[in-house]
Simulated assay, not measured.
Amino acid sequence: MLKLKHVHHIAIIASDYQRSKAFYCEILGFMLLSEVYRAERDSWKGDLALNGDYVIELFSFPNVPARVSRPEACGLRHLAFGVEDVAAAISALNIDGVNCEPIRIDPLTGRRFTFFADPDDLPLELYEA
């Protein structure tokens, strides 16, 4: 059996790198660890950390096609973040102009959760952990 240690990172391609970097850093609270412009690809790459842990590799590429996310398509469904209080997190996102779906209750765990989207409509979830 393969012995994976942990998830190393999640790669996200943004249609507007600066807008997505601001969303993930200024609104969601990620920290930009490093950033490089790759001229040969006309592409930015930023490494983002959450609470000191490297989590997201944020890319830009010219002329990227839109990804189908709704109706739900095969592939990565969404990215979920654990929070202490879903209602408080929704309030903080609303202040920054980010709309969230109504709070739902996970029927298996009884925990509250909601969904919202990044600037490219990538589904993101807040799950009360």
Rank of each mutant, 00 (worst) to 15 (best):
N51D: 11
A22R: 11
I95P: 00
L50F: 15
R67D: 10
T109C: 14
W44N: 05
F116S: 03
R38C: 06
L122G: 01
M1A: 12
V86C: 13
D96H: 14
F113D: 00
F81Y: 10
F59L: 05
N63F: 05
A92T: 00
D118Y: 04
P123V: 11
V68L: 15
D120E: 03
F115A: 01
I13L: 11
R77S: 11
I27N: 04
L4F: 14
T114D: 01
T114L: 08
F115Y: 15
P65V: 08
Y24M: 12
Y24P: 04
L2P: 02
V36H: 06
E35R: 06
P119E: 05
A11M: 10
L108H: 13
F30D: 00
C100S: 14
S43H: 06
R41T: 04
R70I: 11
P107L: 12
I103D: 06
H78T: 05
T109L: 15
D16S: 15
P65G: 13
F61W: 07
L122K: 03
Y37L: 11
V68G: 07
I95N: 08
C25H: 11
E35Y: 07
R41M: 10
L2E: 03
H9C: 04
C100H: 13
A11D: 12
I12V: 13
R77M: 10
A22S: 10
P123I: 02
E57S: 06
H8S: 08
F81S: 07
M1D: 08
L76R: 05
P71K: 14
I10F: 11
L32T: 05
D53S: 12
G29I: 13
E128V: 06
G110M: 09
N99K: 08
E125Q: 12
G110H: 09
A11N: 12
A22M: 10
G75A: 02
I90H: 04
I105L: 15
C100K: 13
L28N: 01
S43T: 05
D120K: 10
P102Q: 10
L2W: 06
A92K: 13
I13P: 01
A80G: 07
P123R: 15
V36T: 10
G52D: 02
M1N: 14
I13R: 14
E57M: 15
H8N: 15
A11H: 07
L79K: 00
A129S: 11
R19Q: 14
Y127C: 09
P102D: 06
A39P: 03
A11P: 02
L93P: 00
G97N: 01
N99E: 07
E84D: 09
D85R: 10
S20F: 04
I90C: 09
D121F: 09
C74N: 04
R104C: 14
P102N: 07
A11S: 13
L28V: 03
A117I: 09
F115R: 04
L126E: 02
R19W: 09
A117E: 04
R19M: 14
S60Y: 02
A39I: 08
D106E: 12
I27M: 10
L108Q: 15
I27C: 03
A129H: 14
I56C: 03
P123N: 06
K21R: 15
L50S: 08
P102A: 14
P71R: 11
N94F: 03
G52C: 07
A39V: 05
V7M: 15
D120I: 08
D42V: 08
L79N: 05
N94P: 04
V55N: 02
S15I: 00
R67P: 02
L124R: 00
A49E: 00
P119Y: 12
R41S: 12
T109I: 06
L58N: 00
